[in-house]
Simulated scan of single mutants.
Amino acid sequence: MEEKSLILTDDQVRQKIKRMAYEIYENNFQEKEIILAGIHSQGYELAKLLQNDLEVIASFKVKLIGLNLDKFAPTQSDISLDCDTATLKNKCIVLIDDVMNTGRTMAYSLKAFLNVKVKKIETAVLVNRSHTQFPISTKYAGYELATTINDHVAVELDKNKKVVYLQ
């Protein structure tokens, strides 16, 4: 069994998510609606938590959508959204995942938006490991973590407990 080291406690994760929600609001306060696109599965869970916080503080409408792709074989899998792409036209999209490692998942996820004229696309992650190999940067990061490429960061966003471990 692999040993886990706790990086962020439940309270710390919730605090990071709340801060990210305020940053998203501050950078998009003039919008009428923003779209939170969560990459299934943990990115979608993070997007739901951000939506809850944004709906409390923001004056704009917040729409949550899911994005499906095979993170281990993105070139061989379909990349799909669980909404009609026409609803994304001229909207601000925040693409959300739990951890940014190389930027690969985010880069392939952009394919779902390439045939739609969106206003802008921003990215949000709970943990940014900064091992980027793709030209993707994180606009909103809850936590910047210096790790080796062989380390594994595990995010748990369960109903009762939200924590981050290093394995």
Rank of each mutant, 00 (worst) to 15 (best):
E2P: 15
K4L: 15
S5Q: 09
L8D: 00
L8Y: 02
D10W: 00
D10F: 01
D11P: 02
D11S: 14
V13S: 01
I17Q: 01
M20P: 03
A21W: 03
E23G: 07
E23L: 15
N27V: 08
F29I: 11
E31R: 04
L36I: 11
L36R: 00
L36K: 00
A37I: 01
A37G: 04
I39Y: 00
S41A: 11
Q42W: 07
G43M: 01
G43H: 01
Y44C: 08
Y44L: 15
E45S: 07
E45K: 10
E45H: 09
K48Q: 14
L50E: 02
L50M: 12
N52T: 14
A58M: 05
A58I: 09
S59Y: 10
F60N: 08
V62Y: 00
V62N: 02
L64Y: 05
G66E: 10
L67S: 02
N68Y: 13
L69G: 01
K71Y: 09
Q76V: 10
Q76C: 09
S80C: 10
S80F: 06
D82K: 09
T85S: 15
A86R: 09
A86V: 14
T87Q: 09
K89T: 11
C92A: 12
I96C: 06
D97C: 02
M100C: 15
T102A: 10
G103F: 02
R104M: 14
R104E: 06
R104V: 03
M106P: 04
M106F: 11
Y108C: 11
S109P: 04
L110M: 15
K111R: 09
K111L: 12
L114W: 05
L114R: 08
K120F: 08
K120V: 05
K120H: 12
I121D: 05
I121W: 03
E122C: 11
T123R: 00
A124D: 08
L126N: 05
L126G: 01
N128Y: 04
T132L: 13
S137I: 13
T138G: 04
Y140T: 09
A141H: 06
G142E: 06
E144W: 06
I149K: 05
N150Q: 13
N150A: 13
D151I: 02
H152I: 12
H152Y: 09
H152Q: 08
A154W: 02
E156M: 09
D158N: 14
D158L: 15
D158R: 13
N160T: 14
N160I: 11
K162I: 09
V164I: 08
V164H: 07
